[in-house]
């Protein structure tokens, strides 16, 4: 379905007059997670994550490429050196910390259910329902850990989960609040709404690097601090959300 085409998003740092060879950072992302990372109609990789990666590259005067990779193989691909850093809206979890190292968070996510408008769905009575989430996400893990008496269906992409919510195969979806927010604004989500309070509200999202790659991790941390301080971060934030997602 999805072309795993190599997409060179931008070559930023090679400005005229910069004669010395710039650092090269290869980023990986999923490319199927709007509004954070997605491929637009013209085949270009766009989204919040992509803008952040590009801003970090400008800050570091590095030369950057961004490639896409299916979500459930994205950590193995990082560790297999297909790229050097993951900027893919990845939550910091203890399990992932066994496999990769994380930079400082670049936004704070919440998990919140979405179901049909007017349905009596409530996050406190899930018994017997069919709930969906994307495979290998903290939403999927949350469902598996907290919900024992409902059926849980896991999808390869968030889009496929939304398709099954709108077809009625699912009673509700648990996903990242901002991703849900973006979908609810779209035509496909117009008959659905948030249900209840977020079930988890302090999910820190960061860039992942290979274990022990402290040089790159610290460089990215420094650049992240700088773009937050100089207003670049806010500009990117405001392009996608009318509220602050940093804290």
């Amino acid at each position: 379905m999805r072309l795993k085409a190599l997409i060179v998003a931008t070559v930023m740092a090679a400005v005229a007059g910069n004669a010395y060879a710039a650092d090269i950072i290869r980023f990986g992302t999923e490319g199927a997670y709007p509004p954070f990372n997605q491929i637009d109609a013209s085949g270009k990789l766009t989204g919040f994550d992509v803008d952040i990666a590009n801003a970090l590259c400008v800050q570091l005067k590095a030369e950057c490429t961004i490639v896409t990779q299916d979500w459930d193989g994205i950590i193995p691909a990082l560790n297999g050196k297909k790229f050097d850093a993951l900027v893919a809206s990845m939550s910091i979890t203890p399990e992932r910390q066994q496999a990769v190292d994380f930079t400082d968070p670049y936004y704070t996510n919440k998990l919140q259910f979405v179901a049909a408008k007017g349905s009596d769905f409530s996050p406190v009575k899930l018994k017997g329902l069919v709930l969906g989430a994307q495979r290998a996400t903290i939403a999927g893990t949350w469902l598996e850990e907290h919900v024992k008496d409902a059926e849980i269906k896991l999808y390869d992409t968030q889009d496929n989960a939304y398709l099954d919510l709108s077809s009625g195969r699912l009673d509700a979806i648990l996903a990242d609040k901002f991703v849900n927010w973006d979908w609810l604004k779209s035509d496909g989500g117009k008959d659905f709404e948030f249900k209840g309070e977020p079930v988890f509200d302090n999910d820190k999202v960061a860039i992942a690097v290979r274990k022990g790659d402290d040089a790159l991790r610290q460089k990215l941390n420094g650049a992240l601090k700088a773009i937050v301080a100089n207003g670049t971060y806010k500009k990117i934030n405001d392009k996608y959300f009318p509220f602050n997602i940093y804290q």
Partner: peptide
Amino acid sequence: RTIIAKTY
């Protein structure tokens, strides 16, 4: 794939 999502 689901197991890999848990175990990496």
